[in-house]
Design a protein around this nucleic acid. Sequence first.
DNA 1: TCCTACATTGACCACCCGGTCATTTGTGAA
DNA 2: TTCACAAATGACCGGGTGGTCAATGTAGGA
Lengths: 224, 224
Amino acid sequence: MAETESFRNLAEEKQERIYRAAVQEFSACGYSNASMNNLVKEAGISKGSLFKYFGTKLDLFDSVVNMAVRLVKTHLKRVRSETNGLPVEERIRGLLLAGFSFIDEHPQLARIYFRLLQSVDSPFGVKWQTSLHRESVDFLHGFLAEGKGRGEIHPDINLQQAAFILSGIMQQLMQAYYTEHVDSGLGLYRSSQEELESWVNTTLQMFFHGIGDSDDNRTGGEKK
Amino acid sequence: MAETESFRNLAEEKQERIYRAAVQEFSACGYSNASMNNLVKEAGISKGSLFKYFGTKLDLFDSVVNMAVRLVKTHLKRVRSETNGLPVEERIRGLLLAGFSFIDEHPQLARIYFRLLQSVDSPFGVKWQTSLHRESVDFLHGFLAEGKGRGEIHPDINLQQAAFILSGIMQQLMQAYYTEHVDSGLGLYRSSQEELESWVNTTLQMFFHGIGDSDDNRTGGEKK
DNA sequence: TCCTACATTGACCACCCGGTCATTTGTGAA
DNA sequence: TTCACAAATGACCGGGTGGTCAATGTAGGA
């Protein structure tokens, strides 16, 4: 566990104050550029205390990341259970919209989460990255597998690869929604709900039916 | 310009030695964690000299990034001209394979390039990111537009959005090829040429024909 | 009131950073 | 050989870092 006994014994208000400052600092600066001095000032506690609560910068970061990841997973699992029984396409639509709304509600945590997925900052980043990527692909794989079982997905499709591609597409959309320079003028960045839904529609359209003109010669494409 | 007169007057061997050390350091540590002290030691020159050649850490980084970006663009443009006249699908296949081979030939530069696309390290990262994302999407848009003109792409498809999605897919593949923890056990990471081509095939298959079972009810999906 | 056990503090530490500049070294002309 | 000039050097600077610890509160039982 990352935080010490003494942190858990703190008044809840103080714990939250510290967490809030940590989330703020890490989301703004990433791991290695985050400054414990700033953090301490922001939280209104002394440096000595902070290092009593969390032995190390890494411990604190680990704690914050754990929280962020737990929250993301909660959101996604809720979508999974709430869309149970619907067609795959609807379920993935739900995932995308849930992703956008998560960014709206927790922009800083989203920032930390995506940074973790992509950057190589933080010494132990790899530990998280590997498992998060795998879990993300597995999660999507579950959706697709069920859809395939119901005949909504072409039997020749390799689900692992499809899930992998889908995960890339989703990341691209999420990133553009909360990072202006990824959007690069396409109109996703902080766009309205209806524009968002339009993007989601066309994305699903492309993912399920492709962009090709429907001369549907599906061939090859099976791995090995 | 980033480098000073005195750098351009150096013996070519020395210039290369310095560039090589800089590329090494930046690709390994990112911008802000890169250490000029390490760099200087690696290059076998004195600190004073380095700061004569490049006034600032940022200037040096800018110079390195310029080189990396120029090289990437050269590779991509070669593919564009060499595949002129072929079907879109073939051209995009060419792009993907060229991407993989670029990573093989210049792994460190590829690392710097992708870091630039994704991370928010480096104070002026945004300047690069915005233009790189835009250019990348525009580049793909060019391919798709030509394909649409030849009837290889469904007329209802919004090319901007398709190019955006495609760029996400390509990034995902590239990342998995050179970063083990993104691959997360799928088998792309440093895989053989034939496995690579199999991945490219299925990816193209999905992008052009979708994953859905071919009950082809293409509807809606047009923006606004 | 005193004592004890514990929570809190911030001055302090060693280290590393990007950047400077007086000094040393190298070089070609006279 | 001497000299003038440019190139190269590395000790040094102010500042910021993660982390420590003796000193200082502070609350509760005797």
